[in-house]
Design a protein around this nucleic acid. Structure first.
Lengths: 96, 96
DNA sequence: GAGATATTTAGAAAATAATCTAAATAAAAG
DNA sequence: CTTTTATTTAGATTATTTTCTAAATATCTC
C-alpha cells in the first residue's frame, strides 16, 4: 500500500532478516522469534509491519500461525528502482 | 553504508520525489526546494540523509551546490531485492 | 471446561526522525 | 570589506518507532 510503507518495513534490520529467513520457506512466529534476541511481542510487532506492507502473508494452522514471503510487492519495488536507475526493467518470467 | 540507511532514506516521500526529480538531471538545492512546501533547512536535512545513504552526490559550482543521482547504490538494492525474490538477478549492461 | 502453548494487543518508556526558526558559513558582486 | 544570495548547522519541538512487561485471545489436549 504505497512505497513509503514498504521501504519503511525494509529499513529495519530485524525485518530484513525475517524476510531472508522466510526465503527458505514458511515459518511460524515462534520459529522466527527463536532467531532473534527480542521478545515474542516485539517479533509480533515486526510481523505486523511486514504484513501491513504486504511483504508477508499469514496462514493459521493448528496452534501456529505461519508466515511466508509475498514476492509480488518486491516485484513492484524492483520496478520502481529500475526506473529510478533509468533502465527499462528486465523481464525474467520463465513461465510466460 | 548498509541497506538500513538506504531503505530508510527511501522511506520518506519527499526524499523519493527528490530522487525522481534528479533522474531528469542535476539540480541545485534551491531548485530542488522549490518543488516542496517546506523550508530550505528541511530540504538540506533530506539531502544530507540521501547523501549519507550515498544515493546522491554533490558538486559545488559558483554559488550553487548541485546534486545528482548515484545509481550504483540503487544497483545494490536491486540485487538484494532480486535475491529476496529468489531469482538470479538479470544483467542488463549494454556496454559490456 | 481447565490447563498448556502460541501469538497478539495494550500501555508505557526510550530512542529516532522530521520539521521549524534563527543563526552561521560560503562564495560572488560590487 | 560589505552586502547579497545559496545553503547548512544548531537547537527546540512534535511525531513516529522500537522495545519491553503484563494482560488478553486463540487453539489444542485432556
Amino acid at each position: 500500500m504505497g512505497f513509503g510503507e514498504t521501504f519503511k518495513a525494509l529499513a529495519d534490520p530485524v525485518r530484513r532478516r525475517i524476510l531472508t529467513l522466510l526465503k527458505g520457506g514458511r515459518l511460524s512466529a515462534g520459529e522466527i522469534g527463536s532467531h532473534f534476541p527480542v521478545t515474542g511481542a516485539t517479533i509480533s510487532y515486526h510481523l505486523s509491519i511486514l504484513k501491513k506492507a504486504d511483504l508477508i502473508r499469514e496462514s493459521r494452522q493448528k496452534t501456529y500461525i505461519y508466515y511466508e514471503l509475498n514476492a509480488s510487492v518486491v516485484e513492484e519495488l524492483l520496478l520502481w528502482l529500475s526506473e529510478l536507475k533509468g533502465e527499462t526493467p528486465n523481464e525474467n518470467h520463465p513461465g510466460t
